[in-house]
Nucleic acid binder design. Sequence first.
DNA 1: AGCACGCCGACT
DNA 2: GTCGGCGTGCTC
Length: 741
Amino acid sequence: MSEPLQHYAKVAMPLPLYTYFDYALNAEQSQQVVIGGRVLVPFGKRKVLGIVVELSNDSTLESTKIKNVLECLDQVALFDATLLKLAQWLAQFYIAPVGEVFATMLPSALNKGASATPAAIYYLTSKQAFSSEDKQRAAQLLARSKQQLNLYERVSEHDLRLSQLKSEFSNTVIKGLQEKNLIELVEKPEPTGQWQQQIVLGSKQRPNPEQSIAIASINQASQFTVFLIEGVTGSGKTEVYLQVIEEKLLLGKQVLLLVPEIGLTPQTVKRFQRRFGDVVAVWHSGLTDAERLKVWQKAKHNQLGIVIGTRSAVFMPFADLGMIIVDEEHDESFKQQDGLRYHARDVAAYRAKQYDISLVLGSASPALETLHNALNKKYRHLQLLQRAGGAAMPVMKLMDLTGLPLQSGIAPAMLVRIEQTLKKGEQVLIFVNRRGYAPALICTECGHVETCNDCDTPFTVHVTTNNLQCHRCGQNKAYNAHSFKPKCSVCSSQSVTTQGVGTEQIQTFLTEQFPSYSCVRIDSDSTRGKRKLNTLFDEINQQKHQLLVGTQIVAKGHHFENVTLALILNVDSYLFSSDFKAPEKLAQLVTQFSGRAGRANKPGEVWLQSYQVSNPLLQDLVNNGYSHFARTLLQERIAAHLPPVSWQACLRVEHIDQKTALAFLVFANSLFSQFKHLRYFGPFPAGVEKKQTRYRYLSVAQADTNQYLNKALEQVRNSLHKHSLSAKVRWAIDIMPADFS
DNA sequence: AGCACGCCGACT
DNA sequence: GTCGGCGTGCTC
């Protein structure tokens, strides 16, 4: 029996609106339409793609107001029941309009109307059954064309993919056979689930006892379970991933592996491809829209086994998802910093629960919220403490800077260490959190600092590009420290000088200091361009460079075996931040950075330069390591009622006029104050107080439970939305903010 | 978010 | 007298 026709569709539009819109369906559309599919509808003066969330036989609106759906784009829902539920949860949890959530979850090609069904594949097939008669006839016909005969025989055995034959046979050969009417080109959809036959298992490593326990625990889980693998760098987390993934793939289940933005190196991908063959797809910001669409389609239609992807891959539709892994789960790039401000790790947890499958979180420096859940026994805690091959962890040491004459920010004793290390034929890694030559240019006569007017921030001096750059808005102006004598733009004095130290300056200094060694800079300036970073890493591993100076980039992903001395310059900047997460971030940075150095027979040394060497936090980190330090920090957070034992939301406001931005926040605070169990702080200037001519302020609201915070913020959002300033200022709610910049 | 309508200042 | 500034309000 057929369903009664549904005449109206409730449609979510990709706009910051919190209501659905009703549209009428004609008889034909009533047959086609699916909940969770796209419809093209007239919306005001334009035509917009929306997502159908509900079908009904009547509408509360007067029929004259209701317009007709123009087109139903999907016969199969883009959002099945599970994904619809996920979208609704996201909208609720992040206080966001569901239409925008839908748009965020889809690859942009689908938001623009591309087809959700994978393109058909072209096959060559032989015209008749292959009898000996045919063979004779073909042999006669093709007597003068060896190639065509060859192809004909191949195709006669079984149908072959056109794309596979293109490399073996030229177009003329294929065309020739077609014209002789012996073969034909047919379109067939790619079969579903066939990747399971394409798995080519590579050889595994033999796991050590810790790895074996981890693998067995994860494989035994038959329902929703979250695992934290707390494993020092080099302890073989990846091998654990590979083995538990294999288990799922052999059951015919798909696997999602989320990695940080920078962590998706060709080496990692190759390792997975070597192990599993051609069932691996990648998803990252470097793909074109068309490439992303293809991966999305293949995941949905069960045409791939594994997706390795960055943040937004967490929304991938899967036909039969068996497990999610989040590698380097503490990494901040899992938090989206605009639009729908979701955290991919938290979305992954929700999805794992939906599908009743395992979520594996891995890190050498787990986020405090994850550690908290592990210590609470909400998550299963697996530890990998041994480094492969018995390599020792690098030793961490503090360098007291008080009273020392620094050269380009480096202590004299450190220069001696650097020289010793170089002489042994080993490499040195230096971390600075600033790119460019110096973070400021100052006049010693009048004190004027060259400042970007749009951002109220000192310009950074760049020597390689001969300009002053604003690191907030990107604007720059020519500045050449060598070819002419620079002048102060206020008093015209020629006694201008740089202040502070960036990567360029250290590179220049070390090159002068150690002229017989090659010093390379690794920051976003020197690694611009697609493959440059990997080329650089290859050169470093080939020992073409001995001195490595870099920013955050060097703390992630890549291991340098011959680095035995690592140096972190500006540790103190993390100790006095107003961001309560700063010590956690410092510890993660130091831990990740330490993981880059040393190998079995050459343990590394990591030095932290500081004016605050007696700081108890630094002492704890250096003497007891991340694991202990994190537990100390967690106790402090618990005592101070901060996350992860409380829940925060941040209201961010931007406007050209300072007072307008603040007025909106004052109003927001008055709304917060109506909730008895909500605490709020602010307005504060954002970490970046002014950016591209707009002032930025924020307030923070905090509650003991997410439920309370969520209910309060939903009401606050509704009131803010109605406020007259709402359309004027830029504002956003950020649930569980990663930072306050 | 768009895109309209609508009401006040410098231009042919 | 008109072009265009961006304030306000609506979109099924």
